[in-house]
Structure formats: C-alpha cells, structure tokens
Simulated assay, not measured.
Amino acid sequence: MLPLTCPTQAYDWGSTDDIPGFQRRSGDGKPVAEVWVGTHPLGTAMVDDGQGGERPLTEVAGELDMMLKILAATRPLSIQVHPTAARARAGFEAEEAAGIDVTAPERVFKDPQPKPEMVYALSTFDTLVGFRPTAEILRVLMPLQHPLTDSMAKNLRGNPGFAGIVKMLESLLHEPPSAEVVKEIVEECRRAVGEGIDIKRAYATAVEIEEFHPGDVGVVVSLLLNRLTLQPGEAAYLDSGIIHAHLKGMCLEVMVSSDNVLRAGLTSKHVDPVGLVQCLEEGMSRVARVTPQLFGTSTDVFSPAREFALSLTQSSQAEPAGVVLPARGQRLLVCTGGELALLNRRDEMLHLRRGDAAYADDNDGELRVIGTGEIAQAYSPDGAAGRLDDLL
C-alpha cells in the first residue's frame, strides 16, 4: 500500500474551497476543479521514493486502465460527449499524424482510449444527462413564445425520435442563435418559471446556466437535456457517446484512464461541434442512475461497466476487527470521511484521513479497514474478491 500525492486541475469552473476543504488544507483563492488519482500522462500521481523525493506511480503500477477523480464545480461544465473506443483510436491516430501537440488547446484526442465514466455524489450534485424524449422536448418548447423555439418544435414534429433530436442539435451548433436571441429565450423561460410553469426543471436550468454563460448556444441546448440531481451516496453512469454537462456540486468520478472530451458549448476551451455530433449515441438519464449491490453489511458496490467498479465502505468502532474490502489486484483508494487505517494481508498499516489517496495491488492481497469513516475504492470488476451474488 502506498500513499499518493495527486495533481490538481485549476479549471475556471472549479471551487476555491471545496477540494481544499476536503483535503484538510487552506485554499489560495484560486479555483480547484479536479484531483486526478491515477497514471494518466497529463496528471500522474506520485509516490515516495524512499529517499526524501517522489517518483511517478507509473514506475510502481505501470499504466493503469482506470482513473479516479475528485471533482468540485461551482458553475456549469461544457456540454460534452466522450468518444467510443473506435472513434478515440481513429481520432488519436489522426491528430498524432497531423503533428498536433498533445497539450495544444485545439487537441481533442489526448489518448486512444474511450471514456465511459461514473459519478458518485459527495454533495448534492446536479448534471444534465442524455436527451429528453421527443414528447417531453415538445412540451418544453411549446410554452416558449419565440420564433426559434417554434421552428425547433415544428422541425421535431416532422422528424421525431433520436435522429430528429440530433438533427436539431446539429442545426443549433452549425448556426448558433445570436446572443440576443438566447437572451430572449431565457426571458421566456424566466416568465414561465414566474408563472409557476416548468417542465421537469428545463426552464429553471436555462435561467441558471445563462447567469454563467450569457448568450451561449448551450443555454438553448440545455432545454433538450434531462436534468438529474444526485444526493450524496447516489451514482450515475455516463457511457461513451452520451451527451452531458455537469452543473454544480462535488463528486467522485471513476473512469477509463482518458482525457478525451468533445465540447460544443458552455466553455472557454476548444469546441468541436461536428465531432460531438458524430460521437453521439442514444441514451437517456432514466437508466443513468446506478443501483448499488451490498457487499457484506458495510459496503455499497457500484459496477455499471466491465471497465471499472467503485466500492464505498463505512467503518466504525462497532467492527474492531475491521471491514473487508471487495477487491484484489490494482486499486485506487480515497478516504471520503473520518480517519481510517488500511491493513493488507501482512497486517501492514496505512493511516488515511479525509481527502487522502492510496494505491494497492496484488502484493497487498485482501484489504481491511478499521476506524470510523468512509473509504472509496476504484478497481477492475475482474479483481473483485468474490462474486457479489454469492454474498446477497
């Protein structure tokens, strides 16, 4: 078991206080958006080299297939899609051949990996996930008295379903409405909210987003998307090809170790609306929520994909012998609350407090946790300590 020192990302949508507070330190007034726990080349965790310095986790673990992040947003993130494996590989090879530096702002495919991901809420967490059904989009558009929304509704009636919704999105991104038109639509949304009318929070969402991104086409696009609110302890899975935009809150993200993002609104970063549309896959937030399975009596396991799983284990003094965690193999761990100690198969001990991260592998065998608190563990489902079904 090795304690990790993990890099942070200072994106403009980050919080000045949430992550520093989570890590039990004072902020410097600058936004801290993410902590990267893993071996991605754009943000690799470090371990003690035993000589008073540090070395990359890759020297110990190799290149991990998964990554764990701590994310804190105080304003909406970009409207985005992550590519499938085939698109990621083709896009990466094309940009490599074109000689675009991997750190260049216009670089889209930073690696050849897809990026399915799951979010686990540490606070109330709001996000937009997937397109609303055709009938619901029409219900959203009809009360808004504006030529653009009238035209959108007319086009969708003539071409309903997923293909028609994508066509509508493509039209919005190809010829974005002016800032004045976006403002007019927001005023219609504000009027509807004032009259006590809202369709599954579509209008309130547009009003909220416009405060941070006035005049942005993403404000109008948000009307087409499902708003999903996760309470602490709840999770949602965002597969490759699913359009989404996180709005606010703090969460853990577990994902394939990738930084491939295609954006098309609500951002100051490079946008690729054509690429985003090409990467879209059908998906609805109705199935985004992930229901955990119980491992033992103290651990929830969220395992929505073959690439990764996330376990959350509660520990207390009621279990002085410790709680067994449900995995072996390579694991990334973050203490999400309290003060805990990890014990490996040799009874070696690693103390962790809220915000601390660690790495474990096959040499550690089965891990136990003692103390009072909570620990999150990202791992490959193939490294599970046993079939969950056998424990239910």
Results as ranks from 00 to 15, higher is better:
residue 324 V to H: 13
residue 341 A to Y: 02
residue 317 Q to S: 14
residue 336 T to S: 05
residue 329 G to R: 03
residue 314 Q to W: 11
residue 344 N to K: 01
residue 330 Q to D: 10
residue 338 G to W: 02
residue 322 G to S: 00
residue 318 A to W: 08
residue 338 G to N: 00
residue 321 A to F: 09
residue 327 A to V: 10
residue 334 V to R: 09
residue 330 Q to T: 14
residue 340 L to M: 06
residue 319 E to V: 14
residue 327 A to Q: 08
residue 324 V to I: 15
residue 330 Q to E: 14
residue 312 L to Q: 11
residue 325 L to A: 09
residue 324 V to S: 15
residue 338 G to K: 03
residue 329 G to Y: 04
residue 324 V to T: 15
residue 333 L to P: 05
residue 321 A to S: 12
residue 321 A to M: 11
residue 313 T to R: 01
residue 322 G to R: 01
residue 341 A to I: 02
residue 314 Q to R: 14
residue 342 L to I: 00
residue 335 C to L: 14
residue 336 T to L: 05
residue 320 P to K: 05
residue 334 V to E: 09
residue 316 S to L: 08
residue 329 G to T: 08
residue 326 P to N: 01
residue 319 E to Y: 10
residue 342 L to C: 04
residue 312 L to M: 07
residue 327 A to P: 13
residue 320 P to E: 06
residue 321 A to C: 11
residue 315 S to D: 11
residue 340 L to V: 07
residue 316 S to T: 14
residue 317 Q to A: 15
residue 334 V to S: 13
residue 341 A to S: 07
residue 337 G to L: 04
residue 342 L to V: 00
residue 313 T to V: 01
residue 335 C to E: 08
residue 340 L to T: 08
residue 339 E to T: 15
residue 337 G to N: 06
residue 319 E to Q: 12
residue 319 E to G: 10
residue 316 S to Q: 08
residue 325 L to M: 12
residue 333 L to H: 07
residue 342 L to R: 02
residue 312 L to C: 06
residue 312 L to G: 07
residue 325 L to Y: 10
residue 323 V to I: 07
residue 322 G to I: 00
residue 332 L to V: 03
residue 322 G to D: 02
residue 331 R to G: 10
residue 325 L to N: 13
residue 313 T to C: 00
residue 328 R to N: 11
residue 313 T to D: 01
residue 322 G to K: 01
residue 313 T to P: 01
residue 326 P to G: 06
residue 331 R to C: 11
residue 336 T to N: 06
residue 312 L to S: 13
residue 329 G to L: 12
residue 336 T to H: 04
residue 332 L to T: 06
residue 337 G to K: 02
residue 337 G to F: 02
residue 344 N to H: 02
residue 325 L to E: 09
residue 315 S to V: 03
residue 327 A to E: 15
residue 326 P to H: 04
residue 333 L to I: 13
residue 328 R to L: 15
residue 324 V to N: 13
residue 318 A to C: 09
residue 319 E to N: 14
residue 332 L to Y: 04
residue 321 A to W: 06
residue 335 C to S: 09
residue 339 E to H: 15
residue 317 Q to G: 15
residue 320 P to Q: 05
residue 344 N to I: 00
residue 331 R to T: 14
residue 330 Q to R: 14
residue 342 L to N: 04
residue 326 P to I: 06
residue 342 L to G: 03
residue 319 E to A: 12
residue 338 G to R: 03
